Simulated assay, not measured.
Amino acid sequence: MHGEYKVHGGKLVVCDLEVRDGKLADVQIAGDFFLEPAEALTDICNSLNGLPAAASVETIVAALNAGIRADAALIGFSVEAIAIAVRRALGVAKTWRDYEWEILDGQPFAPTMHMALEEVLAAEVGAGRRAPTLRFWEWERPAIIIGSFQSLKNEVDMEACREYGVEVVRRVTGGGAMFVEPGSIITYSLYAPAELVADMSFADSYAFLDQWVLKALNEVGIAAFYKPLNDIASPEGKIGGAAQKRFSNGTVLHHVTMAYDMDAAKMTKVLRIGREKLSDKGTASAAKRVDPLKTQTGLPREAILKSMTDTFIGLNGGRKSALTEAEIAAAEQLAAGKFSSDEWLNHIP
């Protein structure tokens, strides 16, 4: 049995093993990592041999921590990475290619509709009525989207929003406020089975679910990298941020917003937090703080979206899909109810 795991920003861990009488046997760990002293590799394999084939990640990690000599240095990988490679060899841990992904192209919707679609599509994937899905968003009109746990009055200047015609909505995920306008932003969502990230910490799953988009940005000339906990950045500055929610139905919602051509002056007028953070730097610094993809690539927004789609399909597979009538109807009902209600928007005043 063979399994591989590439540590984000690190090295490849490869596991080959057999299962005899329900236990791991002849375990071999290899890869392009660094390990000192070299004899610690024997510790690793000995710690794994004899473990139950049904061992959890926690059990595997505990065995490795107990069995590896105290002075060992694991460079570019970790005991958690070894556990993931082991479980992949056993066929327990899923990879992207274990699913048939569907891709929804951007369709302009009102802000409340986008918020509703997040819940509806996560529910559909969890119920097995929809395959795991990548959805690109298009915005029908300007909006501020605040995180589930943010204070409305602390984050948003409602008077300025009314002046500029900016709608304010609250999403189901945590994180910070976003200012969006049609054509100025690239937003995407992943609706994935939780088992795809079952062997990862919450923090590690952020990096894992965004690996493909870093490659896509590299393809268009951006030296993009992941900055914990939830930022996508480049040497020129921040590009965007991610947020995530794990639903009880076994679905992970992971969505990312990246700036393409941000109106920084307007952003600082409608967002209080932006005003406070940049009060001593001015609008020019605001433009630098969330560095638009347009200035780094010189490409039309559509070209970047195409690179993202092509990269995702090349790495993970996927086919184009469309929202069903039932999904749209369910989202419209939720958008008109929960996500348009003052109760939801103001649940943290």
Rank of each mutant, 00 (worst) to 15 (best):
E124I: 04
P111F: 07
F136M: 12
L134D: 05
I84G: 00
L134K: 05
R88G: 00
I103G: 00
G147C: 11
F136A: 07
A122E: 03
E119G: 05
W101N: 06
R141D: 02
L121Y: 01
I146R: 03
M113N: 07
E119I: 06
R141V: 05
A85F: 01
R130D: 02
A122L: 00
V120A: 08
R87H: 08
I145S: 09
T133W: 07
V125H: 05
R97K: 14
Q150E: 13
A93H: 07
E124F: 07
N154S: 12
M113H: 14
E100M: 00
R129N: 11
F109K: 13
A127F: 10
M115K: 06
W101D: 09
A116D: 03
Q150R: 09
I144S: 00
W101Q: 07
Y99C: 02
G147R: 03
R88Q: 02
T133L: 12
D98L: 06
D105T: 11
R135G: 02
L117I: 11
E140W: 04
Y99I: 10
V92K: 11
E118H: 14
E100V: 03
F136Y: 10
T133D: 06
P111I: 06
D105I: 12
R88W: 00
E138K: 15
W96V: 09
L121N: 01
W101F: 09
K94Q: 12
A143T: 07
D105R: 14
